[in-house]
Write a protein that binds this DNA or RNA. Sequence first.
RNA 1: CGGAGUGUAGCUCAGCCUGGUAGAGCACUGCCUUCGGGAGGCAGGGGCCCGCGGUUCGAAUCCGCGCACUCCGACCA
Length: 567
Amino acid sequence: MRASETLIPTLRESPAEAEIPSHVLLLRSGCIRQLASGLYTWLPLGLRVLRRVEAIIREELDARGAREVQMPVVQPAELWRESGRWDVMGPELLRMQDRHERDYAMSPTHEEVVTDLIRRVVDSYHEMPVNLYQIQTKFRDEIRPRFGLLRAREFLMKDGYSFHLTDESFEKTYRDMHDAYAAILERIGLEYRAVEADAGNIGDSESHEFQVLAESGEDLVAYCPDSDYAANVEKARALPPRREQGPAQTLTRVATPGRRTIAEVSDLLGLDASRCVKTLIVRGAREPLVALVLRGDHELNETKASRLAAVAAPGTVASDTEVEAAVGCSVGSIGPVDLRLPVYADESAAALVNFVCGANEDDVHLTGVNWDRDAAAETVDLRNVVAGDPSPDGKGTLAFTRGIEVGHIFKLGTKYSDAMQLALQDGSGGEVSLIMGCYGMGVSRLVAAIVEQCHDAAGIVWPAAVAPFDLHVLALDYGRSEDVRRVASAVHDAGVAAGLDVLLDDRDERPGVKFADADLIGIPLRVTVGARGLRDGVVELRRRTETESVRVPIEDALARIGSGELL
RNA sequence: CGGAGUGUAGCUCAGCCUGGUAGAGCACUGCCUUCGGGAGGCAGGGGCCCGCGGUUCGAAUCCGCGCACUCCGACCA
């Protein structure tokens, strides 16, 4: 393809709205343009990348028995009402009406539609299992779209759904899809981790996220360098410590006038923050308020807290006035001793002996506090893990990295099957609700994640597997040199004959502009054809990953490109 | 939705504080020179200065109300 015949509007400067590398570079390289907040147009170059990523996804899924379908984006509200999500979803579900004032949703996901499809189409358990996927535009009215393609409102997603009679059948497909996701990311050449994740509101059991490692990632991943343990920090656990040993000290009241924070109290007492506990009061599910106790140097993990049956979801910290009314002191002086609320202590706090806590009386704290003797609590996992915590598999300590969630697979169980009456006879006289799996991969987000990981100061460095073109022919002096035109065309044709996608820069631009654009666009292999080189009978080869070009005799270059050996 | 910031030429921005009828660089058009890492000269074109209202003899500039975009937070399959 000739550059003069396509639209690649590169930008010399960064648009003001873009902050992170993928957003800046996708805009500057002419891959995308923003229409409005969270809405992007894919230009020819970007669309080629998107299509190549899609192709890889299709190949890996098809190879594992998933079958592609295409479901409607606009969906009748009655299906959403049937599942209960019309009322549950909130404003991120974009709603609209047709001319008859019937309600519709612009679909953020397709559980309802696919469940409805299966119950209409599948008549017998002999047809099980079924595994379908589609690659389609989704719309979620995000509160705050940001980071370009990484959190857009309209985006391209691969969403897959599987249906099973038995857990064994589900587990096999889940593993197959897990393998497919790993294979996709490996083919692209990304550094990633499959991590244990919290399933959010959607599932009730295990789920895995596929996190592409990048500084700009919104997710924090805890992993163990010495084992394969990795988990989203929302979910990550540490090996619970054993109860400390040592003789119990006497419970003692100490005056702590004006000291409210853990730092102030531990400073006053000359102790480490880890010897103190902090007590947070949150809204309860069964009772109005519940107390959560953490070691002073630890932070509450809100996802874990919300998962406690006794805690109202979403987790909400009680207001200062609520606390004072219930406990009789201000927030800085709460403690588990004689506290008339249900108390849940994090494993690390529960392991302490002779610790410090608030006395439920302003300006007073207690020292020498011990569980069982002085206070009672149920032990649970409540905190965010920190670097250096022992890995839960006992094989080392945890470290952190940031990631971009490009895939998430989970077990849905029978949530939708039950709500929408999707069941089959099981062959032995009974009837079973089908077990569902759900497999999402953000295709447009994946493109952004690739750029986050594959760029340098000059521009994008596309991995060969997804590059918009394989070969970039830079024809310098194109308009003025018949020789350049002839050789550049020959190089172009040799590439095409070898099955490559070739971009020929035949624009009437100065060399510097062409070089800069080529770096920005990031095509893996570049051949520079210029009058200067042709006088010596050479063209120049350079990979985008390298800094030096190699002068190669014209005939050699043609032969090597034609043979495909350069890829 | 809370907090912060920004809206001036296609892009990046100055001008605003201290009101007097709009600028630079790049991009674009024409001509000349140049031609291997974003050239130079000359001559041009291009602006409801985000919108509406107010103050004023006069508003890009001051005030009010909107809208849009961005960032932080909350939120988020």
